[in-house]
C-alpha cells in the first residue's frame, strides 16, 4: 500500500503532466476554452471551502476577491507589463490582504451577518473599480495578449495549463489545512465557536488565516482572467454568479473533505458548459441555482455524502433484515 501522501502527490503531478500533454496535442481549441473555466471553478470552490466548509462561515463575496484579483492583474499589466506569474502573485497578494481586512472587520460577526458583509464587499469593490479610470472604469479595458510562449500552440492552451497548476496548488493547500491542526481548529469553530475558544483554540487567528488564504486563492484564480478574455469590465468581473458557483460547487461536492469541492466544481462547471453549448440563454446559470437548492435540501453532505452512504449500503447488504429480532 502506497502511503496517502505519496498517492496524493503522484496524482497531483499526474494532473499537471496530463494538462501539459493535452495542451500540446491537437485537441480542439474549444476544449481549452471550456477547460479553463472548469479548472477556475475548481480553484474557486476549493478556496471557498477553506472558510465556508471547514469553518462554517458562508462567504457570498467570492466575486469580490476574484474580481480584485483580475483587476490587480490589469494594474500590473498597465504599470509594468510584467509576465503572468507576477500578475497572479499580485492578484493573490492583494486579494489575500482584502481577505485579511474582511476578517478583521467582520471578526465579531457570525452567520448571516458575516455573509451579508461579504456581499457588501463585492459592491464596494465594484464601485471603486467602476470609478477608477486607470483600469478602464465602467466601460472596461481592452488588453493585448503578449507574444506566445514556446511550446504552447495558443495562448488559451497556456492559460489552461496555468489554471491546472493553480488548481493543484489550491487543492494541496486545502488538503494541508484539512489534515493539519489548523483544519481541526476550524472544524471546532464550525461546531461551537465558544467551546473552541474555551478549549484553547486560537479562534480569531485561525479565522483570519482562513479568510486570508481563501481570499488569496480566489484572487489567484481571477488574475489570469484579463488575459483569457483580453478584455475586462467591472459588471461581469464582479458578477454574483462567481459567488454562487463557488458556494454551489463546494456544497454539491461535499464540504467536509478536500475532494468535495473538486468533484462538485468539475461536475457543475461541466454541466454548465454542456448546457451553454446545447441550449442558448440563461439556462446554464439556472442550473447552478437549481442544483444548489436540490443538494442543500436533499443531500446536504453532497456527492461525497451520497457516495459514502452507497458504500455503507454495499458493505452491509440487508444486514438488519437477516438478524433475528
Amino acid at each position: 500500500m502506497i502511503p496517502r501522501n505519496a498517492r496524493f502527490w503522484t496524482g497531483a503531478a499526474a494532473v499537471i503532466v496530463l494538462a501539459v500533454i493535452v495542451s500540446l496535442s491537437r485537441a480542439n481549441e474549444y476544449f481549452f476554452f471550456a477547460g479553463f473555466v472548469v479548472l477556475q471553478s475548481v480553484v474557486l470552490a476549493t478556496a471557498w471551502n477553506i472558510l465556508g466548509g471547514y469553518a462554517g462561515y458562508v462567504n457570498f463575496g467570492t466575486a469580490a476577491f476574484f474580481g480584485i484579483g483580475a483587476y490587480m492583474a490589469v494594474v500590473v499589466i498597465n504599470a509594468t507589463g510584467a509576465p503572468l506569474a507576477v500578475q497572479i502573485l499580485a492578484g493573490a497578494a492583494v486579494s489575500g490582504l482584502l481577505g485579511l481586512g474582511t476578517g478583521l472587520l467582520t471578526m465579531r460577526l457570525r452567520g448571516i451577518f458575516f455573509s451579508i458583509a461579504t456581499v457588501a464587499i463585492i459592491f464596494i469593490a465594484e464601485t471603486l473599480i467602476t470609478n477608477w479610470r486607470y483600469v478602464g472604469g465602467a466601460t472596461g479595458i481592452q488588453l493585448l495578449r503578449p507574444p506566445l510562449m514556446e511550446p504552447f500552440g495558443s495562448y488559451t492552451r497556456m492559460l489552461f495549463v496555468v489554471m491546472a497548476v493553480l488548481a493543484v496548488i489550491a487543492v494541496s493547500i486545502a488538503r494541508y489545512i484539512e489534515t493539519s491542526w489548523i483544519g481541526r481548529g476550524l472544524q471546532a469553530i464550525r461546531d461551537t465557536e465558544e467551546a473552541a475558544e474555551c478549549s484553547g483554540v486560537p479562534t480569531l487567528k485561525l479565522k483570519l488565516f482562513a479568510c486570508t488564504v481563501s481570499g488569496a486563492l480566489m484572487g489567484a484564480a481571477g488574475a489570469p482572467l484579463p488575459m483569457y478574455l483580453s478584455f475586462l469590465e467591472p459588471a461581469s468581473s464582479f458578477s454574483l454568479n462567481y459567488s454562487v458557483a463557488a458556494l454551489a460547487g463546494a456544497i454539491i461536492g461535499g464540504t467536509s473533505h478536500w475532494l468535495g469541492p473538486v468533484i462538485g466544481a468539475i461536475l457543475l462547471a461541466s454541466v454548465q458548459q454542456i448546457v451553454t453549448v446545447t441550449i442558448p440563454g440563461e439556462i446554464n446559470v439556472l442550473v447552478v441555482g437549481v442544483l444548489l437548492v436540490v443538494f442543500v435540501v436533499a443531500a446536504p453532505d453532497g456527492v461525497l455524502g451520497l457516495l459514502r452512504k452507497l458504500r455503507g449500503k454495499l458493505r452491509r447488504p440487508r444486514a438488519p433484515a437477516e438478524s433475528p429480532s
Partner: peptide, 19 residues
Amino acid sequence: DAGVRGLAFFFGVAFIIEV
C-alpha cells in the same frame, strides 16, 4: 447546521428567481 444550509438555500432561491 441550519445556519449554513439555510443561507445557501435562500441564496439559491434568490438566484433561481432572478434567472
